[in-house]
Design a protein around this nucleic acid. Structure first.
Length: 471
RNA sequence: GGCGCGGUAGCCAAGUGGUAAGGCCGGGGACUGCAAAUCCUCUAUUCGCCGGUUCGAUUCCGGCCCGCGCCUCCA
């Protein structure tokens, strides 16, 4: 069964398939590396990761490219404010991004090209556009001539939209030379504030515009035409619209055959913004005692086409939900696979796969997963798996496939040995001893003390467990 | 103003032309020194409002109210 996915361009849900019959080749607009990415950015990357995982767990090969935007106004300005070289600055934030991706269990893209690493390719593409009469230069900058590309506006349905530029947005001197307000920069002439961040080109010193990097990188790594292109909804216009124009104006071929856009994340019912202080990063969440996996779960709890409301209630719910899955894992003696490659046999978890193949319906998939978890557990209680090792193994493989498809790492309860500091363990032991001697007062006092230090005690029949308390 | 999306239980959030998944929270019970955890169990006669189509609509159509996104570099 193929993956059916909504396509922004046609506005239809269409089958995703490889045009070469073998590998689904797709591109994701990556981060601008000028600071830590926030959970809203990660919603997009997590959904793109699920997209790939769903393909791979259904046996489909993929080729995943995701770029790094390492030269633009923000990276240049920030690096200069810090007085460091652009490269040093962007390398630092790239590493941070990679750390966060690992924490969220995102599969590494097969290639991760950077804008700075593809200056010649970008210049070459601009030259083709100029030669073809689709672009013009003015005062050392080069602009795409929107009027010369009749299909402009198809993706975002801007065709009839009046594209105007108000006086207030024309603060940059190099923007005065555009022939039409809709035209956009392919190459920006060098400005004093760019410092040392400029390159030679047939039009003089300067740097590439934003949109051209993705076009040039796609053409190099995926070809002039490829299977799917993805990003946050806000990129539909102008970024993706412009990417299409830049490529199709010279190739006359379909650029990306399928467009996959992820809706925005809201925080506590509000749009994320710096002024509201709700631009959470994984680091912020960690400080509050939350794990990246819990954030990942929250990001999967809504359908990607709808804005999702991130709340701390949801984070708490995610923790409980994950621990419930951990209980299930323990019951079935499931341990996460450490082997390379994703499990493809869903077995009894087939309904989960079915939901995912249906436009990446992650909330439906989670709902079905929990229903199965309950039903299978009941079956186990009733002894339905007595002497049926192969059936048990099917359950474990199916659960592994489910975890692989969603990118969740579910550790069996009691198996997630977080390092417990020695002094905490000792306090807990003292409490246990007091409890054994029925010294309830001391036992309760020690329990409160542990809680004050951020640890929660859970008693079992003949011992206790420690878990991080939510801050 | 233009284009687009949505309003489902306390919260998050699926879904369907035939009468509402799942998670969390909350109530009750078992268990427990008390908790926590766990297990069982209960919680929307109702899906923003008003009309229409239909044997039947939350699901289709029209209108209204409210919220949101994009409209040049924000995922």
């Amino acid at each position: 069964m193929p993956l059916n996915l909504h396509d922004t361009l046609s506005r239809e849900t269409r089958e995703v398939f490889p045009m070469d019959g073998e590998t689904v080749r797709f591109y994701c607009c990556g981060p601008t590396v000028y600071g830590p990415a926030h959970i809203g950015n990660f919603r997009t990357f997590v959904m793109q990761d699920v997209f790939r995982r769903v393909l791979e767990t259904s046996g489909q090969k993929t080729f995943h490219a995701r770029n790094l935007t390492d030269v633009d106004d923000k990276t240049i300005r920030q690096s200069q404010e810090e007085g460091v070289l652009l490269e040093e600055f962007t390398t630092r934030w790239t590493e941070r991004f990679h750390d966060d991706c690992r924490a969220l269990n995102l599969l590494d893209p097969h290639v991760e090209p950077s804008a700075v690493g593809h200056i010649p390719e970008q210049i070459a593409l601009i030259e083709r556009l100029v030669q073809g009469g689709k672009a013009y230069q003015a005062e050392g900058s080069v602009y795409f001539k929107v009027d010369a590309f009749e299909a402009y506006g198809r993706l975002s349905r801007l065709a009839d939209r009046e594209i105007t530029t108000s006086a207030t947005t024309r603060e940059n001197s190099d923007e005065y030379d555009r022939e039409s307000a809709a035209d956009f920069a392919l190459w920006k002439s060098r400005r004093p504030e760019d410092g040392d961040n400029y390159w030679d080109s047939p039009w003089g010193e300067g740097r590439p515009g934003w949109h051209i990097e993705c076009s040039a990188i796609c053409m190099k790594h995926l070809g002039e035409s490829f299977d799917l292109h993805s990003g946050g909804v806000d990129l539909v216009f102008p970024h993706h619209e412009n990417e299409i124009a830049q490529v199709e104006a010279v190739t006359c071929k379909t650029f990306a055959r399928h467009w996959f856009h992820i809706a925005h994340l809201m925080v506590e019912g509000l749009k994320m913004s710096k002024s509201l202080g709700n631009l959470h990063t994984l680091e912020d969440l960690a400080e509050k005692g939350y794990k990246a996996q819990e954030a990942r779960y929250v990001l999967l709890s809504g359908s990607y086409r709808q804005p999702l409301n991130f709340t701390f209630d949801s984070m708490n719910a995610a923790r409980k939900a994950l621990s419930k899955l951990g209980d299930f894992a323990a019951k079935f003696d499931f341990h996460p696979s450490s082997q390379d490659g994703l499990e493809t046999e869903f077995g009894p978890f087939y309904p989960v796969q079915e939901a995912l193949l249906s436009d990446l319906n992650t909330p439906e998939a989670l709902g079905r997963c929990f229903r199965l978890v309950r039903e299978l557990s009941e079956g186990l209680e009733r002894g339905e798996y007595e002497g049926r090792d192969e059936a048990l193994e099917e359950v474990r493989r199916g659960f592994q496939a489910t975890c692989d498809a969603l990118g969740l790492v579910v550790a069996p309860a009691g198996d997630d040995n977080e390092e417990v500091p020695a002094e905490i363990r000792e306090l807990a032991q003292r409490r246990w001893d007091a409890k054994q001697e029925k010294d309830w007062e001391s036992a309760d006092r020690l329990r409160d003390e542990l809680l004050a230090q951020g640890w929660e005690v859970k008693d079992g029949k003949d011992g206790f467990e420690l878990a991080r308390a939510i801050a």
